[in-house]
Design a binder for these strands. Structure first.
Lengths: 228, 228
DNA sequence: ATGAACAATATTGTCTACATTTTTGTAGTC
DNA sequence: GACTACAAAAATGTAGACAATATTGTTCAT
């Protein structure tokens, strides 16, 4: 039922995937300029295909295209940030519920294996891998929940969450600590639906609490108000 | 907070919008071929822009692109159909809950006005307008709920629902009758959250019940198994 | 008549060149 | 010396031509 992994995608989707990953791993900051020719050279594709990919990413809200100016990594405002986290809590709660309803015993080891990878990357100090695996855990939950649609939504939510934490984090980023993931797996194994939901919501709340959403951060392109 | 109406969109998004509308109104059937040159001529844009739009629609799952063959309106399978309706029930329930939390008294007339339009189109026998307004009611709910993200998700869900009902409806299509919408408005006005949720879920269940999801319908392109 | 090989057509995919627009740099004028 | 106007550069947007591929139609041999 679930696509397992989206390996059977077109060439455009692959470009999107790579840009998405760079954003999710915070290697591309909000407001960063995305020049077509540059991307075409990097990915060794035609400029036309880059434009297709950018159009897709714009429709997903990850990239903002200004006519005759170019493409930039989006800079979500505080309203959008709150919106994303609000929706994410609801979606992930549903994912966990559905997962507990449908998960089979032989799927638990997949979660445990992923958790081990997270711990290793964390101890190794590999922040890039840590960020990727951290988001990957949530995606794995959605995948095991057996709904392609929820998977797609969560994908979108996670990439936007990355942008938001990159813009609004007040102190060092929390990185979705593996400990909370471990506690979640325990609840899933015990099929403790209320417990798992509680942990997930607290988990996401912790991430949100480390953000400073009190005031709009001046956007990179509008320097007007930034310099008074 | 909410964009009110997405009037400030790029030219690519406009092409997507028009194709999306044609699919949502069932003027474009599942499996229909989408020739680039033809679309370019119809919309009076370059072929490159059509290709961008098709790439976006593919990423949204509305269109399937076969390399070197072309673009077709997607033909969702029964698994995906069940998935869409399952998620839609959950999403729309959250929309209604959030709407009741946040709706102000002066927004109720907007819903009533929309309902009047639905009734008029229904009595007029204008099926195209009826379908559009019917989906528009659900979108209006999401818009008033004040979450751009939920709005986007629902947009996606509704277009896919259209495809699914076009493929799997067993008898005349139910069309999301205005009466159930009226009952829903009553509950919203009374801020009756459980009642509203109940009506919404029943409403969507009615739509789903009129589908025949018992067996896979042979896809247009694989005539192999269709003709044994 | 049937089947396979081949040619013709149509459509997608890609590349190149050019027009348009924005930004940046420079010279001229007060 | 500062401001304006203009020119140059860079990047985007678009159109057209060409190549690659799949489909359709035809011919030829059996």
């Amino acid at each position: 039922m679930s696509n397992s992994k989206e390996t059977v995608t077109g060439p455009t989707a692959e470009i999107c995937e790579r840009i998405w990953l760079s954003i999710a791993e915070k290697r591309l900051r909000p407001g960063a300029r995305l020049k077509e020719e540059q991307l075409a050279e990097i990915f060794e594709v035609s400029r036309a295909r880059v434009r297709q990919a950018l159009a897709v990413l714009e429709s997903e809200g990850l990239v903002t295209i200004v006519p005759n100016r170019g493409a930039f990594v989006s800079e979500p405002g505080v309203d959008e940030a709150r919106d994303v986290f609000h929706v994410r809590k609801q979606i992930e709660a549903r994912v966990v519920e559905r997962l507990i309803d449908r998960v089979s015993a032989d799927q638990i080891p997949l979660l445990e294996a992923h958790l081990r990878q997270e711990r290793e990357a964390d101890q190794r100090g590999d922040t890039s891998a840590t960020i990727r695996l951290s988001g990957g855990f949530h995606l794995l939950l959605a995948e095991l929940a057996g709904s392609d649609f929820l998977f797609g939504i969560l994908r979108d939510l996670i990439s936007r969450s990355s942008l938001i934490t990159a813009m609004y984090r007040s102190r060092h980023l929390h990185n979705c600590g593996p400990d909370e993931h471990a506690a979640l797996i325990d609840c899933i194994r015990a099929r403790d639906k209320p417990g798992a939901t509680r942990i997930m919501l607290d988990h996401l709340q912790h991430v949100e609490d480390e953000l400073d959403l009190s005031e709009e951060v001046p956007t990179t392109r509008d320097l007007r108000q930034a310099l008074v």
